[in-house]
Design a protein around this nucleic acid. Sequence first.
DNA 1: CGCACCACAATTTTT
DNA 2: TTGTGGTGCG
Length: 798
Amino acid sequence: MTEKDFKTRYIRARKAVIERDFANLNDMQIKAVTATEGPLLLLAGAGSGKTTVLINRIANLLRYGKASDSEELPENASEAELKILEDAAKDENYPDIAEARRLSALEPCEPWRVIAITFTNKAADELKTRLERMLGADARDIWAQTFHSACVRILRSHADKLGYDRSFTIYDTSDSLSVIKHIAKELDISDKEFPPKSILNYISKAKDEFQTAADFYTQASAMNDIRRKIIGQAFIAYSKRLKDANAMDFDDLIYNTVLLLESNKDVRDYYQKLFKYVLIDEYQDTNNLQYRLAAALTGKRGNICVVGDDDQSIYKFRGATIENILSFEKQFKNARVIRLEQNYRSMGNILGAANAVIRNNQARKGKELWTKKDMGEKLTLYIAQNEDDEARYVASSILKSVELGENFRDNAVLYRINAQSNKIEYSLKRNSIPYRIIGGTRFFDRQEIKDILAYLCVILSPQDELRLTRVVNNPPRGIGEKTVETAQSIAVAEGSALFEVLRNANRYPALERSAVKLRQFANMIDDLRLLSESTPLDELFDIVLDKTGYVRALELKPTDENTARIENIGELKTNILSYIKETGETSLAGFLDEVALYSDIDNYDNDSNCVTLMTMHSAKGLEFDNVYIIGVEEGIFPGIRSIGEPEEMEEERRLCYVGITRARKNLTLICARQRMLFGRTSANNPSRFVEEIPSEFIERKAALRNDSFTTRPEVSSYSASPKKSYLNERPKYSTALPQKQDVSMSFKVGDAIIHTAFKDGVIVKLTPMGGDSLVEIEFESGVKRLMLKAAAEHMRKK
DNA sequence: CGCACCACAATTTTT
DNA sequence: TTGTGGTGCG
């Protein structure tokens, strides 16, 4: 055997042995798992098993290193070893597979030398969990983190090199917003002409382009752009304010990490040497800064694997640039591209529709999803009379699917804008269909939570002026706004921290009147800080609640709202306890980091049997058997703002693609002939996206014209006439259908009934309400309250 | 200082 | 239509 022969055979056999570990993957997936070296762009279509590939890829790196993608042989590779490999490759029941595997490894990677970056905590957690399940405890050392948490981790060791204290705090968007508002007031910038949010947007964009506040201002001056000059001033003040408070906003976390890596050779060398393999998930959602971060972490070794789907890029509005994925091959030389197009989620008709819609986009790499499943049900397009009809239709079909044995949790209602959820909610409520809404105010954005956390922040670092001013008179301590302002100007004049001024309030004549209260407050914080050094977090939390009197103030006025707030604070305590339990950490600093980067506590209970309501944006990454997309109309989806804007339109179309591909079995699109939104009624045409779906994949259904739907029957207090049908898949005659009326009227208390979704029940109460009745029915699963007319459609007397 | 009332605006969202 | 933020009054 020549040396060359030996080498070829060895490499082939070794690869075959490795691939045995990944036999449950398809060919493309195996390629993606084994192409370990150099830049790799993985175009992973919706439902193509992207996370599975990511996990298996990491497993391959840890077990076999670069062996599956290298021509290198181990030193002194022998013919005996080759025989073992070849036999193991051939024989599924090879006895000493462990030995073959050992021989197949080539520089296996240590877990802490793999960094896998995601966008959301949820994705990071999923990655961590699945990695640990596959690889055991070793997996815990893998850097499976979000962009932001990875940056925090790096900055906590090196922030001093950028002039920050390593214990810097993190400002979230609303913190940033209040800083901007204060600055705008100080600089006398009108919030009419310069909305704080838009100023923040400029700042964020500038950081994305790696521009400092000074750069921004200079540039604006050079261009003589008065607007940008004013924004530049705000930017400069904002940066100073944060720096003085030793705080970073979300953009700073990434910006500063990039700055650190690009400007400090030692640090750069350290991390580039550390990370042998860099993986980035959801690459289509990255912005310019994140690209630079990825490049800086990767270094010359070039082992970067990005996973993404250009067709699912839907976050342009928050800075994501599809350009990153489209030009990956230019940015990283000799990149390989692998497409994952086999879909494991949806039936054929759904994929046919998805492919047909997305094909209309220009800016894309090009992909076609396919499946081994059969065509399944055609999609349904329901043309409703109005938004009430739409909502009724959704509720009614969900009940039908439940009747056929599905669970509520198999259903999702998706929409373009949150405002659309209202009517659906009412309709689901009327039918006692359990649901949950994703989106809306997040737990950590709630006032009381922010207040308590602000206390904790101040205790940790009193120079955090933003949080300090938030809590100084909350609960009321008789420290007025004026007083705080005076103290602030003294601090500025002296060049000292606001907290110092409060602490020494008696020294300043201007603060004479409130000096006692101010010092009391400062002493309280000082005491708490002293305590925080030796007290575990959970105990400290209770003490803070007590000493600050926050909860006591709420208890004094037990309104519903305050009761809820107290409950939320209790919830926060629960959170702290589980944090301690999970991490074993009892320090305040660690917890505040976690909280700053963790926003969704509500999303934890995904096992309850509920219909899910959310925007299509929030639905990305999820899947359901039955999906309803509502408001599929020109002006809503695509939104009015994107009509006439080709790029925006493509983004809407991608959103549509995301929506469609959430469905496993049934997809219903609904548009209404007439709709009231934001108090205005309009008649919209069906969305162009519907027109883009060939009729072979979709079936049209329409509510027949029925005048009763143009008025709003369910609130018809003027008419007790119970003639109108609530479910309108029936022709118009229903208005005159006497039996119909009899059906809903004939139920009385004590009747035993069968409901299609809730099965056997007994009517326990009937309360007339408007032209309808509230009926309470005792089912096995408990007492449900339904509106009789709606419910009558789904039940009959036993 | 807190509460009530009125004007106004309202894609999409994560960290 | 709904929620929020600002102003003015008690």
